[in-house]
Amino acid sequence: MTEDERDTTITVRDLQRNAAAVLKRLEHGVTITVTRHGRTVARILPPDPVEEAINQAVEDGVIDRADLTRARTAAQTAKIRRAPASPDGDVASQSLQELRDMEGDR
Rank of each mutant, 00 (worst) to 15 (best):
Gln76Ser: 02
Ala85Ile: 08
Glu59Ile: 09
Arg17Lys: 13
Thr77Tyr: 01
Ile54His: 00
Leu45Lys: 10
Gln94His: 14
Ala20His: 11
Asp48Thr: 02
Ala53Met: 05
Gly29Val: 02
Val41Thr: 10
Arg100Val: 12
Thr40Tyr: 04
Arg43His: 05
Glu103Phe: 14
Pro84Asn: 05
Pro47Thr: 15
Gln97Ser: 15
Arg17Pro: 00
Ala85Trp: 05
Asp60Met: 12
Arg17Thr: 10
Thr69Tyr: 06
Lys24Asp: 15
His37Ala: 13
Asp60His: 15
Ala75Phe: 08
Thr9Val: 11
Thr11Ser: 11
Ala66Ile: 03
Ala42Lys: 09
Arg82Leu: 06
Arg70Gly: 02
Glu51Phe: 08
Ala21Gln: 14
Gly104Asp: 11
Ile44Gln: 01
Arg70Met: 04
Arg13Lys: 14
Asp67Tyr: 02
Arg81Asn: 07
Ile32Ser: 04
Ala21Ser: 13
Ala75Gly: 13
Leu68Phe: 06
Leu68Lys: 01
Ile63Ser: 00
Asn18Trp: 00
Gly38Ser: 07
Arg100Met: 08
Pro84Thr: 05
Glu59Leu: 12
Ala85Met: 10
Ala19Cys: 08
Gln94Asn: 11
Gln94Trp: 11
Thr2His: 06
Glu52Phe: 03
Lys79Gln: 12
Ala74Ser: 13
Val50Glu: 10
Arg17Asn: 14
Pro84Met: 02
Gln16Thr: 13
Pro46Val: 04
Thr8Leu: 14
